[in-house]
Amino acid sequence: MVAEPSLLSVKDLCFERDDTQVIDSVCLDLSDGELLQIEGPNGSGKTTLLRLLTSALTPTRGNIYYQGRTLSDCRFEYLSELLFLGHQSAVKVTLSAEENLSWMTGRSRTCEELLSALDSVELTGYSDVPCYRLSAGQQRRVALAQLLISNAKLWILDEPFAALDSQGVSLVEQCMQKHLDGGGSVVLSTHQPVSIKAVRRYSLMDQSIREQFNNDL
């Protein structure tokens, strides 16, 4: 019996910048419904690894496979199924929250969908306000509202909890849990522990994988 190829599989990934090895032979596997947390101290290459996974950076060596095929063979499919949230939220400050969300989610969404997503991230009443009037945390919430209405199969989130209060953090965790329960997958980098039922933690320091179960959830 041939095993089903995993959703995302990384083989011997290396990335070199100015003659220094930033990412050194990383091997990873991610299946449907799994969450992978990338750990490591500052400067250990978390963001670089995530950018390699989004194909924004090209690896010096090694390959990334999506459902068994190399990324260069299925670039369009892969990127269509991908939602990436970086350090910067890609929120345009001169546009309103609703306009921003509408642009980010791309496919035609009804006004109600957008508004209810903004309601869920507690931006009720701010939908028409230009984003420069919002605080850093509120701007982050505009970007996070994507998670509520996105159809993407794979989420890659770089420090999604930055600039969020504890309420915002638990909101993101709920979104992720729902996404995982629906068969989606998440790769995220963060320093804090994540309250999700099953977390696989990958450490960039010793390249170990640890499984962690939070049964009380």
């Binding site: 990127l79 990436f84 970086g86 400050v93």
Partner: peptide, 16 residues
Amino acid sequence: ASDYHDGSLEQMLISP
């Protein structure tokens, strides 16, 4: 410049 600083440019790069 503004697309670079707010991260929109990075999103453009990974658009299908």
